[in-house]
């Protein structure tokens, strides 16, 4: 292995905020953890929803009282007080139980509560972690005492506890064994098609790409997919450490552009053979994705499944 600086990337523990979950199918997939400030956004949204619900309820209730010509007046503010109390303590617990770990605020921001094993939470966990929010909200600053006392939860304790553990769990999460994760909706997939003739020309001459280790290919793929975010100067700077080694090893002309070389390696590895065969018009063109809707009899067409996967179905 001549590329020691790339060995660090994948094999070690992830440095970012992702967490590995083992499914019952014995597959490990990764979740991205939600940080305290993402969760603050969801909390504020939930506060807004709660406020709206109370407001709407007050409106309809006063309309009802008016419509009943004072028949309902004897109830006073009792229904509003009860509703405010219930929303205050059980809003999160009930939503997280019946919406599979989401409240409206969490749903809007794509967050979800799961257990630390990555499983869905149950009612007990949902209710308890929401009751214990009162401990996380400490210390509570009393902002106004008249006419109604409005207290301002600072959430300093929750923030402190969450920043001291790996999963950003607040006290309520620690007591129930839950964590909040981010369900990202990514649509980007597949490889980039490169059509620059300079790259293709250079790729024609790179016979030794097949000897590169897998981790190097992965690093180059990561570079190619992100190089659009950088200017040409920065691209050259990032590409040159690896490109210089490759140029020396493959005895290429020293003035070869590092950025161009990495693009060529990427093209050669992911696209070269397909482009060749498609250009020659031989019997194996780039396979077009087979189109099929969900079949009524509940079986997946055989060609959708490569032979190695057949036994998993």
């Amino acid at each position: 292995m001549g590329f020691p600086f790339f060995r660090v990337t994948i094999e070690n523990m992830p440095l970012d905020t992702s967490i590995r979950v083992l499914t019952p199918e014995n597959i490990a997939f990764e979740y991205r953890l939600a940080g305290p400030f993402q969760r603050l956004g969801a909390y504020l949204l939930d506060l807004l929803v709660r406020g709206l619900v109370i407001f709407l309820f007050c409106c309809t209730y006063s309309l009802l009282v008016t419509a009943s010509r004072g028949g309902l007046q004897f109830l006073g503010i009792a229904p509003i007080t009860i509703l405010a109390f219930l929303l205050d303590w059980f809003y999160g617990g009930v939503f997280e139980t019946f919406w599979n770990g989401q409240t409206p605020g969490k749903w809007a921001l794509g967050l979800r509560v799961v257990t630390v094993e990555g499983q869905p939470i149950n009612g007990l966990q949902a209710v308890l972690r929401n009751l214990l929010r009162a401990a996380d909200a400490m210390p509570v600053a009393v902002a106004i005492t008249f006419p109604v006392s409005i207290s301002l939860p600072t959430f300093m304790l929750g923030l402190l506890v969450a920043s001291c553990n790996r999963r950003f769990q607040r006290l309520g999460d620690l007591a129930t064994g839950t964590m909040v994760i981010c369900e990202t909706r990514e649509t980007a997939q597949g490889t980039l098609r490169i059509e620059d003739p300079q790259v293709i020309q250079l790729a024609e001459n790179l016979m030794a790409v097949a000897t590169l280790p897998r981790s190097t290919i992965r690093a180059i793929a990561a570079y190619v997919q992100r190089r659009g975010f950088f200017g040409p100067g920065r691209c050259r700077e990032i590409a040159s450490p690896l490109a210089e080694v490759l140029i020396r090893r493959w005895e290429l002309p020293p003035e070869t552009d590092p950025d161009l070389l990495l693009l060529a390696v990427y093209y050669r590895h992911f696209w070269y053979e397909e482009a060749q065969s498609a250009g020659a018009g031989t019997e194996s063109p780039v396979p077009t994705p087979p189109q099929h809707a969900v079949p009524a009899h509940g079986r997946i067409p055989a060609e959708a499944v490569p032979p190695v996967l057949g036994k998993h179905l």
């Binding site: 997939q189 597949g190 780039v286 396979p287 994705p289 490569p306």
Partner: peptide, 9 residues
């Protein structure tokens, strides 16, 4: 690439 095309659907 081939694998991707097969599985994408």
């Amino acid at each position: 690439v081939e694998y991707l095309h097969r599985r994408q659907s």
